[in-house]
Design a protein around this nucleic acid. Sequence first.
DNA 1: CTTGGAATTGAACATCTGTTCGGTTTATCA
DNA 2: TGATAAACCGAACAGATGTTCAATTCCAAG
Lengths: 198, 198
Amino acid sequence: MARPSGSDGGITGPRVRQAAERLFARHGYAAVSMRMIAADVGIGAGALYHYTPDKQTLLADMMETHLRSLLEAWQAVAKHDGPICALDAFARFHIRFHLDRPDAVFIAYMELRSLSSENFAQVEALRRQYEAVPEDIIRAGVDQGLMSVADVKLASMALIAMLTGVNTWFREDGRLDRPTIEQRYADLARSLVGVSRP
Amino acid sequence: MARPSGSDGGITGPRVRQAAERLFARHGYAAVSMRMIAADVGIGAGALYHYTPDKQTLLADMMETHLRSLLEAWQAVAKHDGPICALDAFARFHIRFHLDRPDAVFIAYMELRSLSSENFAQVEALRRQYEAVPEDIIRAGVDQGLMSVADVKLASMALIAMLTGVNTWFREDGRLDRPTIEQRYADLARSLVGVSRP
DNA sequence: CTTGGAATTGAACATCTGTTCGGTTTATCA
DNA sequence: TGATAAACCGAACAGATGTTCAATTCCAAG
């Protein structure tokens, strides 16, 4: 009564990560048991250990993968001429990327405390790397006299928090659609850094 | 071997809520056991049930108390003449209140998913009530031609997210002190809603 | 000095936790 | 067709989980 027909490791692997992501985002890492994940996938709890050495690694891999794909996706965006254009691209990119992956985003921001110290260091390094992106843009803008903020680092943290906040209220069937939201946040980003209006 | 000397319900009650708040914020609601809370207070796990009917109520009471005191504290702030002044006061108030209660804030924003549906409805109602504060301010500002945003509700959500974000990076011994941070965020809030600079 | 009740212990409860492992079935390749 | 290895089950482990409860001790009021 083991190895039922239709079983396939190539399919089950992604399904495990997928189920874990949804469940972790919904209930939190600590509140989700391996048995819940297994039940969601439709296998026994023991079979999970063919796809992850343990629960902690499952979480860490998930967060690391998310942050790496975030950085990669940003690097894939074509280079822009000028800080103002770059800021606009960044705001739009951030909104789009985050709206498309609400569960992964939620976990990456909320379950840092559930990571072991080694895994935390890894993830934190990636997060800082991404935080440098808006910081560099704003610094360049200020240096060129195109933007005006009193503190570049604080402004870039404020910008990220503002943009990421979209995930707390966005609903698929809500009042505003994605392109509109993207536009609005890009406008707010420009205002935030004091881009002089025409 | 029960009821040791020095025991006092009037003292233990607050200490329970205090310990629970710190532990919930640090490790998450699901990851904290009643035995951990009890150990932190220095009593047995069973004694906790003199101060809360159950773990869920402990969390819900905590969040409700926090949100009520948030609303109350805002109402205690003197009324301001004009939306621009009100926005400034709100930004400063929000930063100050949140920097003073990082644990309670963290829990109120992160453990909504750990609430039973009845408790969630209660807390959510209070949260919406607070969200109406900046919304009303910005709407007034726009109506009077003093501020300029494309979407009032979106802008107010963006503002709250931006301000609340301070808790993710603030460190007591960091580069910036509280008054400076307050000032910087108030400046950013003005910029965000397009207050025309002199 | 008695008495009542508040405060607390410690054991007990059924159930759940992450993880391991021997055994079993199925697909794949020679 | 036969062998190999991947995929999976189901039981088991030791310990932790929230919660209840009888028993015990202390404090304060009468």
